[in-house]
Amino acid sequence: MINRQKDERDDRLERLFAAARETPPDVSAVERNFETRLAARIRESRERKEPWYGWAWRLAPVFVVLTLLLGAWTLVLDPVHPADPGTALVSVAEQVALVDDLTGG
């Protein structure tokens, strides 16, 4: 019984597909002057000015390269790097002491 019902549904679906395939949709109304409307849309999109922030993101790679260059330049200029945070703290403390000595603080 269930199988027969399923067969009927399959058959119905096939008939629906066949009928829908038989006549392709009528697009003649939309085809008329389609190029003219499209050309107007293309012109409009060309004329629409992009806001300043529209292209700002395109500069992101430039900023990335600049940051990398600055980082490399800093490394070349000051290649001495303390190996651990403790050494860094001592180095900062020494610099503070030196500044104090020089300024008489």
């Binding site: 949709p25 697009v27 939309v30 389609f34 409307r37 849309r41």
Partner: peptide, 23 residues
């Protein structure tokens, strides 16, 4: 355009939608 619109017409519900989709 005819081929594009014929395919698009299977998805659009009316001429306005079809025109939008085609464009």
């Amino acid at each position: 355009k005819a081929a594009v619109l014929r395919t698009a017409a299977r998805f659009a519900r009316n001429d306005a939608e079809l025109d939008d989709l085609g464009q």
